[in-house]
Design a protein around this nucleic acid. Structure first.
Lengths: 204, 204
DNA sequence: CACAAACTTAGAGTCACTGCAATTTTGGTA
DNA sequence: TACCAAAATTGCAGTGACTCTAAGTTTGTG
């Protein structure tokens, strides 16, 4: 890697770090891009050169590649149904306190900041839609369903809807100040319940 | 109703109509608020006085009160499950080509315009979230579930996820130029399939 | 007819974001 | 080492949504 690449990486990282610091201190909406640029010792144009929009300083598009739902589908055990694979993945994420469903320690302050800003909220929802489309596409591929079948989209919406509800549940209790140790068992229980609903239907 | 009230209503309506005309002719993003104001013969400030944001000129918040999912829950027949009520409501909306799930004739051009503009997309997603929250709240009330149960949220996400998938399906075929007569039977079939999934689960 | 409340307006300002042209930095080469 | 072209950075001048404030103007009421 040449000097050029390295410098670019450094600059990008410095801007992102400086921005996150300012956002954490004063909130996303109360920090201007000009301030970020000044603090990072670059011009405003350079900031926009690396990050297409202000939101990307907070929610870097690169970070969202991790924990893609298609991978859960692809890497499931032989004979395992997709829903079972997701149940396992969510439970695993809870046990390991993984970042990918928002079962992290910091995900409450993260969510808190996102909730404050309409811009960030919109971006997060955009990510949700992208994830859902990606999962639906993976399911369609997997099941060989034609383009004329809503099933993959419905299933994708159901699964990711459930995981979102579970994330929200965990975050809500975190924001209420509860310790993880008191949240975890209830969260596991809710997860089982949610996935039972998915598997066996909402007959009642 | 006094003169004041009447004038306000007229002004508001004139602005909205003029705006829709311009948007239809040239696209949402290629029309500035200043142009709308000029065409409606008011100042820019007056536009923002009636409509909090530019998007509201296109997606008037008032129009979205119709077809609220809580009503489907509340007005379901005695002994009918919530899922069955929604199945019935969606099928009814298809039969009557109702606006409330996007089974209208015009909903393809509407969706087409929304898809063109990130701003409008974001707003529509916001409405979806609001609807989901309202349904979840209604379900929680209905079932007497405590605030510590994800079930209402999961169920709400599943139901509205399915209806959204069905809307998208219909709109996609409309945009492909198909006549409603050729879409309707397939749409009914897909609806049955989607709600069967909801009722009996995704075991496979 | 007067007066207060409501409505509208102009004007100035903020901020995200976009071009463009000029300038600097870097990597490779004579 | 000197030089050159490409890439990166910058300043500058916009645009457009939106806000705030202070000043009109219009309307309902006594």
């Amino acid at each position: 890697m040449g000097l050029r690449e390295r410098k670019k990486r450094e600059t990008r990282q410095r801007i992102a770090d400086v921005a996150m610091g300012l956002f954490a201190a004063r909130g996303f909406d109360d920090v201007t891009v000009a301030e970020v640029a000044r603090a990072a010792d670059v011009s405003v144009n350079t900031v926009f050169n690396y990050f297409p929009a202000k939101e990307d300083l907070f929610l870097d598009r690169r970070d969202w590649a991790e924990g893609r739902p298609e991978e859960v589908v692809r890497q499931r055990e032989p004979g395992e149904s997709v829903v079972r694979a997701f149940r396992r993945d969510v439970l695993d994420a809870i046990a390991t306190r993984s970042w990918r469903y928002g079962f992290n320690e910091g995900s409450d302050v993260f969510t808190g900041m996102v909730r404050e800003s309409p811009t960030l909220l919109a971006r997060v929802r955009e990510f949700h839609v992208e994830r859902e489309e990606a999962l639906a596409a993976a399911l369609a591929r997997e099941s060989g369903a034609g383009g004329d079948d809503v099933t993959p989209r419905v299933v994708a919406a159901q699964i990711l809807g459930a995981t979102r509800a579970l994330s929200d549940y965990a975050v809500r209790r975190m924001l209420a100040g509860e310790a993880w140790s008191s949240i975890e068992p209830a969260l596991k229980e809710q997860t089982e319940r949610a996935f039972d609903l998915l598997e066996h239907g909402l007959g009642g």
